[in-house]
Design a protein around this nucleic acid. Sequence first.
DNA 1: CAAAATTAATTACCGTGGTAATATTTACAA
DNA 2: TTGTAAATATTACCACGGTAATTAATTTTG
Lengths: 147, 147
Amino acid sequence: MEIGQVIQSKFRNSKHKAVVNLRYTANCLGNIQNSYMAKFDLSMPQFNILRILRGAQDVISVNAVKSRMVEKSPNTTRLMDKLIDKGLMERVRCESDRRVVYVSITEAGLNALKQIDEDDQSKLDFAGNLTETEAEALSDLLDKLRG
Amino acid sequence: MEIGQVIQSKFRNSKHKAVVNLRYTANCLGNIQNSYMAKFDLSMPQFNILRILRGAQDVISVNAVKSRMVEKSPNTTRLMDKLIDKGLMERVRCESDRRVVYVSITEAGLNALKQIDEDDQSKLDFAGNLTETEAEALSDLLDKLRG
DNA sequence: CAAAATTAATTACCGTGGTAATATTTACAA
DNA sequence: TTGTAAATATTACCACGGTAATTAATTTTG
């Protein structure tokens, strides 16, 4: 459905329309992703953290995880709290620099990821109606928008 | 900055990249908008509700407001609670259908909007680095993405 | 070397958003 | 008509996200 119909409004200009459309579409994607992840008892940001940890191959500082995330807020700590409660990751104090906390994924965490790997993840990067070329064009426009 | 640099990662394909980029960009825009609105002691969704109410010219049901918003959740009620606390809008029970609650903007609400009108709103639909044509193309891609 | 600035992580307090359940009222239908 | 379904708004409970303040440790610098 075209965005103007969705919110039953008109727009001042194409930029205004694009900005509203952007937020609406991001919201839709977020909802699709979260509802998909729900059956694994994970939220999307939690899943992201686990993937980052697996990708790191080794222990990694909280800061390093944060730098790979879309949101750079203290949320990372809180999300990790929940993952640790679930036994999917763990913290280790760094001895050489005692400000730093290292984190790593546990066996249970790897298993959880494996389970998702084996599932159909097409909903996670759902942009199904775009071709690869269009997806590339979209990314370029977004990069340019942010400046 | 290009999205791959922002989150220091590579992507499986262009679709994956576009989806991550989309959420990241929407997030950036939201932050810009909220920080702009902060000086008026309003959040962006609160501001949206006030604009919808002003645009309605008359009392309007909560449902009608909801249908013009990006998020269709019970949040509308909660946002309205806050606006009413601030004296910017009010509720009136509909007498013909007692399930319905009408809402309308107050004088104070109109004044608040007027104050914002007179300010430089360029941050609100910040997509400054896009041309109108590009903004149009972006909207089209987003519409197609959602299907 | 000691005080100040910086860095890493966390916490507190605020905000929004989502699903599900609820109360109330109305419409429908056997 | 009467019981059931549907619609409207709200509430409860959960989640994430942001800014600012805090704690602890390290680095810088005067």
